[in-house]
């Protein structure tokens, strides 16, 4: 474990917590893409499938984190599609998730480290996570604005994988550890946030709201 991965995971936890708090406190999921949250839930379940296969005996931090990620993302989907369904902005959350899931699944079957079920599920999860934020960014471009709290959520969510890139550089240099698939997907994922990062740093930090077109 290094400082970059630690802060990356903390940033990821913060993002999940910020979104849950926003929906719970405002009792509304306006401005939140349910599809993105569904895709994240699929990512966690397919990536941590080992939790379900081998009974989780020893509870170490990593297993607890995996359980938190899975339960929090499923609970967030429950809030969006059931509890606060009336506030879900289905009209603007209109990016076709199939256009993200099918290519990720196809690519996972073509480009992977080992052609076995668990490894392909892990690879699918990595590829899907890289593009999972697109419905959320699409929704913001359709509505033309993002609530400040949603911007903080996106900043934490984007920062998590950006910090992982620093973690991978660190591990390459000190541990000669390379996980090419995760690195390439992580770079793509972080690039997708660049436009938002620019808006966040030039606007939200100054107390303004993000309104598109910028």
């Amino acid at each position: 474990m290094n400082i970059f991965r630690l802060f990356g995971d903390l940033s990821h936890l913060a993002a999940i917590a910020i979104l849950l708090l926003k929906i719970w406190k405002t009792r509304s999921c306006a401005g939140v893409s349910g599809k993105t949250q569904l895709l994240f839930a699929v990512c966690f379940i397919t990536r941590y499938i080992d939790l379900f296969l081998h009974f989780v005996s020893l509870y170490n931090t990593e297993k607890v984190m995996k359980l938190i990620y899975i339960s929090a993302s499923v609970f967030t989907c429950y809030l969006i599609f059931f509890k606060f369904k009336a506030t879900y902005d289905g009209n603007h959350d209109s990016m076709r998730a199939e256009f993200l899931i099918v290519p990720a699944a196809g690519l996972a079957c073509l480009i992977n480290t080992k052609f076995d079920a668990i490894e392909i599920l892990w690879t699918f999860s990595i590829y899907l996570e890289a593009v999972a934020i697109l419905p959320q960014l699409f929704l913001i471009s359709k509505t033309g604005e993002a609530e400040t709290i949603t911007s903080h959520y996106l900043f934490a969510q984007g920062s998590y994988r950006a910090l992982y890139i620093l973690n991978w550089i660190y591990r390459y240099h000190y541990e000669s550890h390379v996980d090419t698939i995760a690195i390439v997907a992580g770079v793509v994922q972080t690039i997708l946030y660049c436009d938002f990062f620019y808006l966040y740093i030039t606007k939200v930090v100054k107390g303004q709201k993000i309104v598109l077109p910028a």
């Binding site: 480290t113 080992k114 550890h177 390379v178 996980d179 995760a182």
Partner: peptide
Amino acid sequence: SNKSLAHDEL
């Protein structure tokens, strides 16, 4: 660079 077979990251 050794390929990490077991993915040890979240």
